[in-house]
Design a protein around this nucleic acid. Sequence first.
DNA 1: GTGAAGATTAACT
DNA 2: GTTAATCTTCACA
Length: 206
Amino acid sequence: MKKLPRDFYTRSTLEVAKDLLGKILVHETPEGITKGKIVEVEAYCGVGDKGAHAYGGLRTDRTEIMFGPGGFSYVYLIYGMHSCMNIVTEKKEVPECVFLRALEPVEGIELMEKRRKTDKLKNLCNGPGKLCQAMGIDRSCYGLDLLGDQLYVEYPEKGRETGSEQEEEPFEIVASKRINIDYAEEAKDFLWRFSIKGNPFVSAKV
DNA sequence: GTGAAGATTAACT
DNA sequence: GTTAATCTTCACA
């Protein structure tokens, strides 16, 4: 298993967002391990992005983690009932991150079904709140280092043992407008949502 | 201390 | 397509 290095996360947010597609998010818990392939993300570029929590450089207890270097998790509770997970990007003092919208279940599917209380595979991780519930992510995961052993992202399991570097399956990236941020005015038209074309696990609202 | 709003989801007309 | 559920966070007094 090969984790993504710190260098991966400290690049520009749009680059990281696109490159995260097809990678594997792993969460190790006392209950077991769950893994999911990232199939849909959104980029949030703090300063200048009216849709972002850190718009205008707003620095609070909640956004504090985004001002650190990339490679950390930013988890928050929305509407009092759902957790959402982000991956912090860029260098120190640049509050940007990538918002995970959908995963394709890879491992620990039984555990996901138990947490989500459904056995419909496509309904496990096809939404920001859903994937967090399925993966067992809540606010106790806020600020975790993705280079640690509990929550991290790894390369897809391909071309192992041969030494040949991982060859990812070819897929097309689709860029589209972000969702549910109509209040963001002009920023809502930015094509900062990226998904894997044709993947059945992207969120329902397309 | 008080109040308004939200990077969602599920259920309903 | 519309709306309730539900509670943390942020702005302001």
